[in-house]
Deep mutational scan, measured.
Amino acid sequence: QSYDVTDELPLPPGWEMTFTATGQRYFLNHIEKITTWQDPRKAMNQP
C-alpha cells in the first residue's frame, strides 16, 4: 500500500475509519448515517 499524506490528517467531525472483516478500509459518517469507501479527507483537499 502506498503512503498518502492524507492518512495523517484528522477525519472531519462525525466520521470514523473502520475495517471490514477482510481488512478493507471504509468510512462511517455518524451524522449523515452513511458509509463510503472514499476517504472524506481527500475530498477536503481538492483544489
Rank of each mutant, 00 (worst) to 15 (best):
E16N: 03
F19Q: 10
P10M: 08
P13D: 14
R25Y: 07
Q46W: 12
L28R: 10
W37E: 07
T35M: 04
R25Q: 10
W15F: 06
G23I: 00
H30V: 07
E8D: 11
D4M: 04
W37R: 05
G14H: 08
R41M: 02
L28I: 15
Y26H: 05
W37V: 06
L9H: 13
W37N: 06
L9K: 12
K42N: 15
A21P: 11
D39V: 02
A43M: 13
D7L: 08
T20P: 00
G23T: 00
Q24S: 08
I34F: 14
Y26Q: 04
E32F: 15
P10R: 07
L28V: 15
F19V: 12
A21H: 10
L11G: 02
P47T: 09
E8F: 06
P12M: 01
W15S: 02
H30T: 10
K33A: 08
P13T: 11
G23V: 00
N45V: 12
Q1M: 15
T18C: 14
D7Y: 07
L9A: 15
E32T: 14
K33Q: 09
Q46S: 12
L11T: 03
A21F: 04
P12A: 04
Q1R: 06
A43N: 15
E32K: 14
Y3M: 15
G23C: 01
P13I: 08
P12Q: 04
M44N: 08
K33P: 00
P10H: 08
Q38G: 07
D39T: 02
P12L: 02
E16S: 11
L9C: 10
R41F: 01
V5T: 14
D4F: 09
P47G: 03
L28P: 02
W37H: 05
T18P: 01
L11S: 03
E8Q: 14
S2W: 05
D4P: 12
E16G: 07
F19E: 14
L9T: 15
Q24R: 07
T6K: 12
D4R: 09
D4I: 08
E8S: 12
L28H: 03
N45H: 11
T22A: 11
A43K: 14
R41S: 04
R25L: 08
F27W: 09
P40I: 00
L28N: 04
P13S: 12
S2H: 15
E8I: 07
M17F: 08
K33D: 04
F19H: 05
I31A: 08
M17Q: 15
G23Q: 04
P40Y: 00
G14W: 04
E16I: 07
F27A: 01
E8Y: 07
D7G: 09
P12T: 02
D39F: 03
Q24V: 10
S2E: 07
Q46G: 12
S2M: 14
T20F: 00
N29S: 06
A43I: 11
L9Q: 14
K42W: 06
F27I: 00
I34Q: 09
I31N: 09
G23L: 00
I34H: 06
L9F: 11
N45P: 09
T35G: 04
N45T: 13
T35W: 03
S2C: 08
L11P: 03
P13Q: 14
T6W: 07
T22P: 03
T6I: 13
Y26E: 03
R41D: 01
D39N: 06
M17V: 12
P10S: 10
Q38C: 11
N45R: 10
K33M: 07
T36M: 04
W37Y: 11
R41Q: 04
L9S: 14
V5L: 10
K42Y: 09
T36V: 02
A21N: 14
T18G: 14
H30A: 09
E16K: 06
I34Y: 08
F27S: 03
K33C: 08
P12G: 04
F27V: 01
P10T: 13
E32M: 15
M44L: 14
E8W: 01
G14I: 00
K42V: 09
T18F: 10
V5S: 12
M17I: 11
R41L: 02
P12I: 01
L9N: 14
Y26M: 06
P47N: 01
A21W: 04
M44K: 13
Q38I: 14
M44C: 13
K33T: 04
M17N: 03
D7S: 10
M44Y: 14
Q46Y: 07
T6C: 12
T20A: 06
M17W: 05
F27N: 01
M44S: 11
P10W: 05
T35D: 02
M44H: 11
L28M: 15
N45A: 14
Q24K: 09
K33G: 15
F19G: 05
G14Q: 04
Q1V: 04
K42Q: 10
E16Q: 13
E8A: 13
K42C: 10
N45I: 11
T22E: 13
K33L: 03
D7M: 08
Y3I: 15
Q46H: 05
A43G: 14
W15H: 01
P40E: 02
H30K: 12
D39A: 02
Q1A: 04
Y26I: 05
D4K: 14
N29K: 01
K42I: 13
T22V: 05
T36K: 00
D7W: 04
W37D: 04
I31H: 15
N45K: 12
V5G: 08
T36C: 06
A21I: 10
Y3N: 15
W15M: 02
L28Y: 07
F27H: 02
T6V: 12
T36D: 01
E16T: 08
Q46E: 15
T22W: 06
L11D: 02
I31S: 08
S2Q: 09
S2D: 15
Y26V: 06
E16A: 08
K42P: 09
L28E: 04
P13V: 12
P40N: 01
T36Y: 00
G14S: 05
R25P: 06
M17H: 05
Q46I: 13
F27G: 03
M44R: 12
I31L: 05
P10A: 11
G14F: 04
D39L: 03
G23A: 02
F27P: 00
P40H: 00
Q24N: 09
P40Q: 02
E8G: 12
L11I: 06
W37I: 04
Q24D: 14
Y26L: 05
S2P: 04
D4Y: 15
T35N: 03
W15N: 03
M17P: 06
P40A: 02
A21K: 13
V5M: 13
L28G: 03
A43F: 14
P10Y: 06
S2R: 12
